[in-house]
Design a protein around this nucleic acid. Structure first.
Lengths: 248, 248
DNA sequence: CGATTTGTTGATCTTACTCAATAATCGTGG
DNA sequence: CCACGATTATTGAGTAAGATCAACAAATCG
């Protein structure tokens, strides 16, 4: 059985390595225990929903490939983008408390997902001390990152917001060993604006401006960062320590 | 010994009841176990710091009485208010991941605090299943609330922000069985503005406007909500479920 | 390949910011 | 207890940054 599901275990270890276990250390045996309860679902197609607001919460999800947008619909019917999830990142943490999802999640492109039921996380994290520590850290990290976004939304100009957003993406890709200077934005301009509290038109204009001043090269959704220094300069204000957790 | 520290245990049970244990259920024995490791520190004077950015993280803190402001100083030396903590609320959750405080916390008035070292939380929550569940929920709840603030900062007008802020305070006081319509703002107008991404002057003007339209009665830091309906109407957009976790 | 969605650019308008002056409140020490 | 200076809050006038409206261009999709 172990043999038969080998490929599954290996790929999902990769997933938990990135999402559930990275950057903290579990033993291989512990990792196996986690991997055994991680399910790999069928990929989501672009536009397909992973869960919606109000739906019962049962599981946490880790993005394996692709990208997810988390959002809410307010009573005017307007969408409010809450965040984007890239490979290695975990969704659903905001629903643990209420046991109902308080946001919806939709694939921005074809996306592969790992699922782990939260009750299994609870069971395992009582047995595996490192996993409990790890979960606390993951949750804490999410809080810290949300607070950084709050600071951004509270204070910054349009250019600073876009700069921070791009630097943030750049760092996240870098962490996953992808290019930090050339990547594809998985989300629409509308989503970026919505997320950053800006009108679409403003997003467009700032992109154009940054392109003219040779900070970026933008071609549709493809972005190349030419002057990372400048971007980092307008982005900072926040992130006393972007480099996140030191291990242990 | 148990007798001698009785008063301590009782008052701190009250604290954990509100903060660490509310609204989920621990048995009385479990509560005793938690209470035994909760320390009640000396009260902070107005302006005194509980911890500062960069400082080593060891403990979570629960506000017993008074109010705490969490903030950051950016490299321009500007302050960025991240949040306010009222009686029964917990600070320090954002530092679990990095093991260093990523924000500073300062008393807005004379404030009594409970402290519990995080390593003790970790130990206890391996033994007490309900405490682990409770910690996950507290962390999750913080994430949800931060996301609600993000939505507020991303979209709303000055009036909507102030309205949401006041409704939020009102609900938090209500939860602690205090008046939801008449309370004292523990923070300065500057702090409110800073927190909501508004200039002080704008805060002042909105207060005046809301007072003129008979929605509020404002007298310095004392606020009375006259038209809670209107406030709730301009505040909503957010909070699919303000009433938080259902028990169990 | 045409239709629909998504992105860009321009012109105008609005909201909230900035600067400045005044008023009220707070805290301290005489 | 009151007077003083210092901080904090309010109000007004002018300005700027970004929103809105509108037209057009480009990309995506069946």
């Amino acid at each position: 059985m172990k043999e038969a599901s080998n490929k599954f275990v290996v790929t999902c270890r990769q997933c938990s390595l990135n999402a559930l276990c990275f950057p903290y250390s579990l033993t291989f045996d512990e990792m196996d225990e986690v991997d055994d309860v991680v399910k790999r679902g069928k990929p989501l197609q672009r536009g397909q929903e992973l869960f919606t607001t109000g739906q019962e919460f049962t599981s946490l999800y880790a993005v394996r490939s692709g990208a997810i947008k988390a959002y809410n619909i307010d009573e005017n019917g307007d969408e409010q983008v809450i965040g984007f999830f890239l490979p290695g990142e975990i969704l659903g943490l905001d629903a643990i408390d209420t046991q109902k999802h308080v946001s919806s999640a939709k694939a921005l492109e074809t996306t592969a997902i790992c699922e782990i039921t939260f009750s299994q996380v609870q069971e395992l994290s009582l047995k595996i001390r490192n996993l409990q520590t790890h979960m606390y850290r993951i949750l804490s990290r999410e809080i810290r990152e949300d607070q950084e976004l709050q600071m951004l939304l509270g204070k910054k100009t349009a250019e600073e917001r876009i700069g921070s957003f791009l630097m943030n993406l750049s760092l996240r890709y870098e962490q996953r060993s992808l290019s930090s200077t050339r990547f594809r934005l998985p989300m629409a301009r509308t989503d970026i604006g919505n997320y950053l509290g800006l009108a679409v038109e403003t997003v467009s204009r700032v992109f154009t401006r940054l392109q003219n001043s040779k900070v970026l090269r933008v071609e549709g959704k493809e972005v190349e960062i030419l002057d990372r220094n400048y971007l980092s300069k307008i982005a900072n204000n926040d992130c006393p320590n972007i480099q996140s957790a030191s291990v242990k």
